[in-house]
Lab assay of single mutants.
Amino acid sequence: KEMRNAYWEIALLPNLNNQQKRAFIRSLYDDPSQSANLLAEAKKLNDAQA
């Protein structure tokens, strides 16, 4: 469930391009235990690109 939530949050971040989203989501599938960390990194990048 945590992975699914992280997937959708990443997919809906407005300032990431599709390539960036795909990279984060690929990492999510590679290591679901890192969901919270990956989401935090994606949000950080999203904010930096705002």
Score class of each variant (00 low, 15 high):
Asn46Cys: 02
Tyr7Glu: 15
Ser35Tyr: 14
Asp31His: 13
Asn17Cys: 03
Tyr7Gly: 07
Glu2Val: 05
Glu41Tyr: 11
Asn46Glu: 01
Ile10Leu: 08
Leu38Trp: 04
Gln49Glu: 08
Ala48Asp: 13
Leu16Lys: 00
Ala40Phe: 06
Tyr29Leu: 07
Asp47Phe: 10
Glu2Ile: 06
Asn15Asp: 05
Trp8Gln: 08
Glu41Arg: 06
Ala50Gly: 14
Ala11Asp: 04
Gln19Trp: 10
Ser35Asp: 03
Trp8Pro: 01
Ile25Thr: 03
Met3Phe: 14
Asn37Tyr: 08
Ala6Pro: 05
Leu28Met: 10
Met3Leu: 11
Ala11Gln: 12
Asn46Phe: 01
Tyr7Arg: 12
Asn37Arg: 12
Gln34Ala: 08
Leu45Trp: 03
Leu45Ser: 03
Ser27Ala: 10
Ala11Lys: 14
Glu2Gln: 05
Arg26Phe: 05
Ala48Val: 11
Leu45Ile: 12
Ile10Ala: 01
Leu45Val: 12
Arg4Cys: 15
Ser33Tyr: 08
Asn18Arg: 05
Ala6Trp: 10
Asp30Lys: 06
Ile10Met: 02
Pro14Asn: 07
Gln19Met: 07
Leu38Val: 14
Ala36Val: 11
Asp30Met: 15
Asn5Ser: 14
Leu16Phe: 01
Gln49His: 07
Ala50Val: 14
Ser33Arg: 08
Ala40Val: 11
Ala6Val: 05
Asn17Gly: 11
Ala42Trp: 01
Ser33Asn: 09
Gln34Leu: 11
Asn46Ser: 03
Leu16Ser: 00
Glu2Leu: 07
Ala48Cys: 04
Leu12Arg: 15
Ala36Ile: 13
Ser27Thr: 11
Ala6Tyr: 06
Ser27Asn: 10
Asn37Leu: 13
Arg22Tyr: 10
Asn17Tyr: 07
Tyr7Pro: 02
Lys21Gly: 00
Ala6Asn: 06
Arg22Ser: 06
Ile25Gly: 02
Ala50Phe: 11
Arg22Ala: 05
Leu13Ile: 01
Ser27Val: 08
Asn5Leu: 14
Ser35Asn: 04
Asn18Met: 05
Gln19Asp: 13
Asn15Ile: 01
Lys44Pro: 00
Leu16Val: 03
Leu28Thr: 02
Arg22Asp: 11
Ser27His: 13
Glu2Thr: 05
Ala50Lys: 06
Asn17Ser: 13
Ala11Val: 12
Asn5Arg: 12
Ile25Ser: 03
Asp31Arg: 08
Met3Asp: 09
Asn46Trp: 01
Glu41Phe: 11
Arg4Trp: 04
Gln49Phe: 08
Asn46Gly: 02
Ser35Cys: 04
Leu16Glu: 00
Tyr7Lys: 08
Phe24Pro: 00
Lys21Cys: 03
Leu28Trp: 03
Ser35Gly: 10
Ala42Pro: 00
Pro14Thr: 06
Leu39Ala: 08
Ala23Ile: 12
Asn18Cys: 08
Leu16Cys: 01
Ala11Ser: 13
Asn15Tyr: 15
Lys43Met: 09
Ser33Gly: 12
Tyr7Ala: 04
Ala50Trp: 09
Ala42Ser: 06
Gln19Phe: 11
Gln34Pro: 01
